[in-house]
Computed example of a mutant assay.
Amino acid sequence: MIGMLHKMGLSSNVMYGLGFASIGAAIASWSMSMNAEPDGIARADRWGIFVGEWAPTFFALGCAMRLEEQWGPVSARERMRETAERAREAMPVGG
């Protein structure tokens, strides 16, 4: 899925930007809903929370896409193997 988003032209910076925009949208929707809805603050809180839940998703996608940009389309197993090899190389030799 991450590779497909990358092929569509999206980048990690776009995802991070959408995460920050959704925080602003959550505040804006809460504020507008509180003033416009007859149900008052309970409905406004639900709108703010609903939109606010998008931010972590966009930030997580941004992190995944950043890894895709840095490592390329490499499987998770290959990444773990490379990380383990680097850790072994960094260990001091001797007794």
Rank of each mutant, 00 (worst) to 15 (best):
residue 3 G to I: 03
residue 5 L to W: 02
residue 5 L to R: 02
residue 5 L to T: 04
residue 6 H to R: 07
residue 7 K to Q: 10
residue 7 K to T: 06
residue 8 M to R: 15
residue 8 M to Y: 12
residue 8 M to T: 07
residue 9 G to T: 13
residue 10 L to M: 10
residue 14 V to G: 08
residue 14 V to C: 14
residue 14 V to P: 01
residue 15 M to T: 07
residue 15 M to E: 05
residue 16 Y to H: 12
residue 16 Y to L: 13
residue 18 L to V: 10
residue 19 G to I: 06
residue 19 G to F: 01
residue 21 A to L: 15
residue 22 S to E: 05
residue 23 I to A: 06
residue 26 A to H: 04
residue 26 A to N: 02
residue 27 I to D: 01
residue 28 A to T: 08
residue 28 A to Q: 05
residue 28 A to V: 12
residue 28 A to N: 10
residue 29 S to P: 01
residue 31 S to G: 06
residue 32 M to H: 12
residue 32 M to C: 13
residue 33 S to K: 07
residue 34 M to R: 15
residue 35 N to H: 10
residue 35 N to T: 15
residue 35 N to E: 13
residue 36 A to M: 09
residue 36 A to I: 07
residue 37 E to H: 14
residue 40 G to D: 08
residue 41 I to P: 06
residue 41 I to V: 11
residue 41 I to C: 03
residue 41 I to G: 05
residue 42 A to Y: 12
residue 42 A to C: 07
residue 43 R to P: 02
residue 43 R to W: 07
residue 45 D to F: 08
residue 45 D to E: 13
residue 46 R to E: 08
residue 47 W to G: 05
residue 47 W to L: 09
residue 47 W to T: 15
residue 49 I to D: 01
residue 51 V to Q: 07
residue 52 G to L: 05
residue 52 G to C: 07
residue 54 W to L: 06
residue 56 P to L: 01
residue 56 P to Y: 00
residue 56 P to F: 00
residue 57 T to G: 06
residue 59 F to L: 05
residue 59 F to G: 00
residue 61 L to C: 13
residue 61 L to Q: 03
residue 62 G to M: 04
residue 65 M to C: 04
residue 66 R to G: 01
residue 67 L to P: 00
residue 68 E to T: 00
residue 68 E to N: 11
residue 69 E to L: 03
residue 69 E to Q: 12
residue 69 E to I: 03
residue 69 E to H: 03
residue 70 Q to M: 10
residue 70 Q to R: 11
residue 71 W to A: 14
residue 74 V to G: 00
residue 75 S to P: 10
residue 75 S to H: 14
residue 75 S to G: 15
residue 76 A to W: 10
residue 76 A to Q: 09
residue 76 A to K: 07
residue 76 A to S: 13
residue 76 A to I: 12
residue 78 E to G: 00
residue 79 R to F: 09
residue 79 R to C: 11
residue 80 M to E: 12
residue 80 M to D: 11
residue 81 R to S: 15
residue 81 R to C: 14
residue 81 R to E: 15
residue 81 R to Q: 15
residue 82 E to Q: 15
residue 83 T to P: 02
residue 83 T to Q: 08
residue 84 A to E: 10
residue 85 E to P: 00
residue 85 E to M: 05
residue 86 R to G: 14
residue 86 R to N: 11
residue 88 R to T: 05
residue 89 E to T: 11
residue 89 E to C: 13
residue 93 V to M: 05
residue 94 G to A: 02
